[in-house]
């Protein structure tokens, strides 16, 4: 085994950088959207850029796509300027679009975008992969929110690009579409493609990414594998209506904070199962129980507080 590994390590060069931001700064007027952000994408990697709205995720993607120029620092893709036509044929992008021309059919959009690339994927392949079978002859205006997103995904991959940018790809998708898209991202990675996706769902980043870059207010605040990131954002939230008082709750195992709002008690806790078991035993009248993983905003609090 050792020899095999050594051999492959020798024959395959160390993971190649396909794109990077180096010290990239970008301001909109007085608002600094990105502040000296450095970010590297290596070949075959799925990287999740995770952050709340307004964190600078979309700006980072736009710099890498050459849609915006950095005020300072550098954006490089395949060793070149992302604005070069030859570079762009190796890139696909799914961006957040408020409005798409509505009177073209799915099939026509595919035909159009395939014509932009030298070696596009076959239409049947794109239709199957993006889950567009049966709706090829529908106008864009007749698609559901999830179908629109899937078409935008299809346009991103139709040129068989080596590097795919997905900006909030699952926004507005139902669970089935979302999981379908996750599978497509995994398939892209399996075919050696590099993917950068932005999301504000911790779960999405966790499920897809080899590496997560957490970004907030224009700076990178954490970076690592999903396991490394999650270890810094432990704890879940218990929400319920209970007569138990705060002092008692505070003594339950793993409880980190308690908040009572409009009669609802919110408990943040490391060992949710144990705490809930005890709470139910202590208060038989407890009701409206909900348990949730930390919202990203909470995760940020945890991440920024830890530093």
């Amino acid at each position: 085994m050792v020899t095999v590994e050594e051999k492959s390590a020798a024959s395959i060069p160390a993971a190649v950088d396909v794109a990077y931001l180096h010290g990239a700064t970008k301001s909109y007027g007085a608002h600094r959207a990105l502040d000296e952000v450095s970010l590297t994408l290596r070949a075959g990697e799925v990287v999740a850029l995770l952050g709340p709205n307004g964190a600078g995720k979309t700006t980072a993607i736009k710099l890498l796509l050459g849609l915006l120029g950095p005020d300072a620092g550098e954006a490089r893709v395949f060793g070149g300027n992302p604005r070069d036509a030859a570079t762009r044929t190796r890139i696909g992008a799914m961006l957040q679009v408020a409005r798409v021309p509505e009177t073209l059919k799915v099939r026509e959009y595919l035909d159009l975008f395939r014509s932009y690339y030298p070696t596009p994927l076959p239409v049947e392949h794109i239709v199957r992969v993006a889950g567009l079978a049966g709706i090829e002859d529908r106008l864009f205006s007749q698609l559901s929110g999830g179908q629109k997103q899937r078409l935008l995904f299809a346009l991103a991959i139709c040129g068989d690009p080596d590097l795919v940018f997905l900006d909030e790809p699952t926004l507005g998708m139902d669970i089935e579409s979302r999981h379908g898209l996750w599978q497509q991202v995994r398939d892209l990675a399996a075919r050696g493609k590099t993917v950068l996706l932005t999301t504000h769902y911790l779960e999405e980043a966790d499920s897809l990414a080899n590496r997560i870059v957490v970004i907030n207010k224009g700076t990178v605040i954490a970076e690592g594998t999903p396991a490394q990131i999650k270890s810094r954002v432990s704890g879940r939230t218990i929400k319920c209506v209970t007569s138990l008082d705060e002092d008692l709750l505070r003594r339950l195992p793993g409880v980190t904070s308690i908040e009572v709002k409009h009669g609802t008690t919110v408990v943040r806790c490391g060992e949710v199962e144990d705490a809930v078991r005890q709470m139910l035993a202590l208060d038989t009248g407890l009701h409206s129980l909900e348990i949730s993983s930390p919202a990203l905003e909470d995760a940020f609090l945890a991440l920024t507080k830890g530093e």
């Binding site: 409005r99 021309p101 932009y116």
Partner: peptide
């Protein structure tokens, strides 16, 4: 929409 096209080749 223009950005989607500009990001394409």
């Amino acid at each position: 929409w223009l950005e989607v096209k500009q990001a394409s080749p």
